[in-house]
Amino acid sequence: MVEITNLTKLFGDNKVLDIDHLTIPEGDFVGLVGNNGAGKTTLFRLMFDLLKRDSGTVLIDGADVTASEDWKARCGVYLDNSFLIDYLGPEEFFYFIGKTYGMTKDEVDARLETFHQFMNGEILGTKKFIRDMSMGNKQKIGIVAAMLHSPRLLVLDEPFNFLDPSSQIRIKEILHAYNAATGATVIISSHNLNHTIDVCTRILLLEKGYIIKDIPAQDAGSRRQLEEYFDITDKTYE
């Protein structure tokens, strides 16, 4: 599904990303973890040709993302607020996004129905523009829009941010079910280790632009490895 080779990105003289080789097969549920500045968002931006790479290639389904736009129809992405057109109402936004993928209004409505519980009655039918909504609801709109056309590759940057605890659990369930039911590849980044380990099948640990660990999430030792890396094992404070 995704194949990355010799991908590098420099900001000035500072190398912020350097990935020799990474393959993410169809159906994987990958969690990207790392401290601030590790290069998670940069990797996502490079994956979808939103940033100029200094070297290397990103192939989605065998096609270089910079050479064609065919991958766009199969991908769903939500990285931040710049993925929202905030002067639209949520319904208008979903219909617009649906239309860009060739979906009819009825198809969009039917798809939105599956997110009914996640949206919790706070998004549809409110007659508010997106710009007037809370950060949490904006996050929900972004996630739903990315999943609207049932993409084969779904990428979400920190999807648990701004969400209340019950919505965090709900989105975990939705992503897990989506991956299991459709066999789609899902890649998320998160600072929440518990959620990431719970939901992902594979975890990539990024440090200063390098992938330093590639571990199966369900492995009993993976939590320990990550906790040790992030230095969050039980401590006694004087």
Binding site: F48, D49, L50, E69, D70, K72, A73, C75, V77, L79, D80, S82, F83, L84, I85, D86, I97, T100, Y101
Partner: peptide, 13 residues
Amino acid sequence: GNYIDCLLVRRVS
């Protein structure tokens, strides 16, 4: 420019 990423991840938008 405020929502350019939304447009660029969609085909020839």
